[in-house]
Design a binder for these strands. Structure first.
Lengths: 144, 144
DNA sequence: TCCTAATTGAAAATGATAATCAAAATACAT
DNA sequence: ATGTATTTTGATTATCATTTTCAATTAGGA
């Protein structure tokens, strides 16, 4: 399934780049893939540390960056100074609804919006490589 | 016109909050309003400093934050670790096209996209307070 | 003018990430 | 299995943009 596919993609990335497969990378990858999406580095480190006290913060940072480079994860910034990573299969994309009340994050995709973005870019002579769309507000629970 | 209106809005903000009108705030406001949009704090500080050597970095940071609070400016983050401010009249809104080649920034507005965003939010039970849409790619010059 | 509270600028603190570096681990050839 | 060159690790230190601190200054009302 998807999970093993990502592990395979990362394995290939490691091999292609001449990097090494290590105990720490395996542990972090397993933990990352079985965690909820959109975890901040700090949060992931804290939770991982409870089970694997030996792993350093620097290693977690480095390894998450590698996940992003390999294409199995994506780095996201919501403007709160925390870097978050979400696991993601290559080519997949979605945008975020962020609740400013409780911090909940919902994902969505909207083909029409993406098409309109392309139109906007065209009219300015730009070629888009990536985009970021975030909607901030209150979720159903918090708006009460 | 717009420029004086913003100065007036800020003046009212200062009064309402029980803050004081100072020489530094006046200088920074004038400089900010007559500068190009999307300046980073560092860039603004550097240019301001050339004309007014006495003003400290901390004061510039603090004052720009006040501009944002008063509603005459908006804080933006493009993910490069630099905070930028743009001057803006209350209620105005636009999104950005960012050239990853030369750093050029173009602005756009698209009512249809905004409407679709609202639809998305509705379908998730969210109420949107703000949003961020950034398109990253190459501008006409850099794509050659 | 006087007085109190806000503001300033310089320097130190913060907070998240990145770089350094000696020690440990890995991959590969033998 | 062993050696060895190379990469990786974890602890520590550095970085970088912003914030905070704090004593000195300044604003604005009494």
């Amino acid at each position: 399934m998807k999970r093993d596919m990502k592990k395979e993609v990362f394995r290939e990335f490691i091999a292609r780049e001449g990097l090494k497969s290590t105990r720490q990378r395996d542990i972090i990858l397993d933990f990352f893939l079985s965690s909820k999406r959109h975890m901040s580095v700090e949060e992931l480190y804290r939770k991982l540390r409870a089970r694997h006290p030996g792993i350093g913060y620097a290693t977690v940072c480095r390894t998450l960056k590698l996940f992003a480079q390999s294409g199995i994860a994506h780095e996201i910034h919501f403007g709160d100074g925390q870097t978050r990573y979400e696991h993601l299969v290559e080519g997949e994309h979605h945008d975020h609804l962020v609740c400013t009340g409780c911090g909940a994050i919902a994902e969505f995709e909207n083909k029409t919006i993406e098409d309109l973005q392309k139109d906007v870019a065209d009219s300015h002579g730009f070629i888009i490589h990536s985009h970021k769309l975030e909607l901030y507000g209150l979720c159903a629970k918090c708006r009460k």
